[in-house]
């Protein structure tokens, strides 16, 4: 009799009464692996009192959910969550352990991979089966290639790339079963003093029909004038940008677009001198028409754009502005 395949486990997260959306992307990754490597998928949900969240997960996904109780103060911290998960995993070794690509997921995965002596791949964009092995793809070479890796260990820990897997759940036919795992109180070293909401209000960006976004390619601060003048061509337009410019203080933090900033979906997104890092793309993928102005035809943003303009923005934008101006004169 062949032993049953080791399960594909997903570690879900919840905080402040909400399932972290990255958990659903990790579930989609697990399902994709399951199609190539048939094995049961089960979700682990660590937390101080994860009962309500576990029931919600089971209802939304139809999957079996194991609520792993982490004794101690709420909210539980990564150190105790890792210890509690490890106590469970040591007796239930998975073939694949999929974790969210959130800050928390990326903090808990390395210690678990270390204890499991597992290969650990972050930023997974795809999986495929080839020659009897499951290959995991991640971006390489400045996001210009996908590198497919084969694990050389029996267990693999994976974090998907933010935005690479769907976070919507199809409605399941029935809720999954929920079970409980109680652990002893672990040694807790870290204390959480709570959550601070985003310091900024992304209202102006979120409401804009057109977003003109500036990146490191503007080169000099003064060149932001070109970005502002370009945005002024549309009535409901806003200027946003990449983290690089916000970190540098050239744009304010409420103008940052991406994973750690605003998520926007305007009718028109003009990316000026932005390379298209996955963390930036995560905040603008839902846009209508995407225009990229970049000197590098191989920049990752070009694969995410409807219209690619290989030009120096300080040359192209002035030409475009005078064209629009001339067009107005003609029309008079």
């Amino acid at each position: 009799m062949t032993p049953a395949a080791a399960p594909i486990l997903v570690v879900a997260e919840h905080a402040q009464g909400r399932i972290q959306p990255g958990s659903y992307a990790a579930i989609h990754l697990a399902w994709k692996i399951q199609r190539l490597h048939p094995a049961p998928v089960q979700v682990l949900l660590p937390g101080n009192d994860p009962r309500a969240a576990a029931a919600e997960l089971a209802r939304r996904t139809g999957l079996a959910v194991m609520a792993i109780q982490v004794p101690g103060p709420e909210p539980s911290t990564s150190d105790v969550a890792v210890d509690a998960l490890w106590r469970y995993l040591v007796d239930h070794r998975p073939s694949f352990l999929c974790m969210a690509s959130s800050t928390r997921g990326l903090e808990c995965a390395p210690p678990l991979a270390t204890r499991l002596e597992a290969a650990h791949v972050t930023g997974v964009v795809d999986v495929l089966a080839e020659g009897g092995a499951i290959l995991m793809g991640r971006l390489g070479c400045a996001n210009q290639e996908i590198h497919f890796l084969e694990a050389l260990t029996p267990t693999v820990v994976l974090n998907p790339l933010p935005g690479a897997f769907d976070a919507d759940m199809p409605t399941p036919s029935a809720p999954g079963p929920v079970a409980w795992h109680h652990g002893p109180r672990e040694r807790q070293r870290i204390v959480s003093r709570g959550f601070l909401p985003a310091a900024t209000d992304f209202g102006a960006l979120a409401a804009a029909k057109v977003v003109v976004a500036a990146g490191n390619g503007v080169g000099e601060r003064d060149n932001l004038t070109w970005i502002q003048r370009l945005a002024a061509l549309w009535p409901q337009a806003a200027v946003g940008g990449s983290r690089t410019l916000c970190d540098r203080g050239w744009l304010s933090h409420d103008q940052q677009i991406g994973l750690s900033g605003a998520t926007v979906a305007p009718a028109l997104y003009v990316a000026c001198g932005i390379s298209g890092a996955p963390q930036h793309l995560a905040g603008m993928r839902g846009s209508g028409l995407v225009v990229a102005i970049n000197t590098d035809p191989r920049a990752a943003i070009m694969r995410e754009a409807d219209v690619c303009i290989v030009e120096d923005l300080t040359r192209f934008i002035p030409v475009f502005l005078s064209l629009v101006e001339a067009d107005k004169l003609e029309g008079q």
């Binding site: 959130s102 959480s192 003093r193 959550f195 985003a198 933090h253 900033g261």
Partner: peptide, 11 residues
Amino acid sequence: ELEGGARERLE
């Protein structure tokens, strides 16, 4: 930093 600009304070 957490997602979307939210933060957590830890000791």
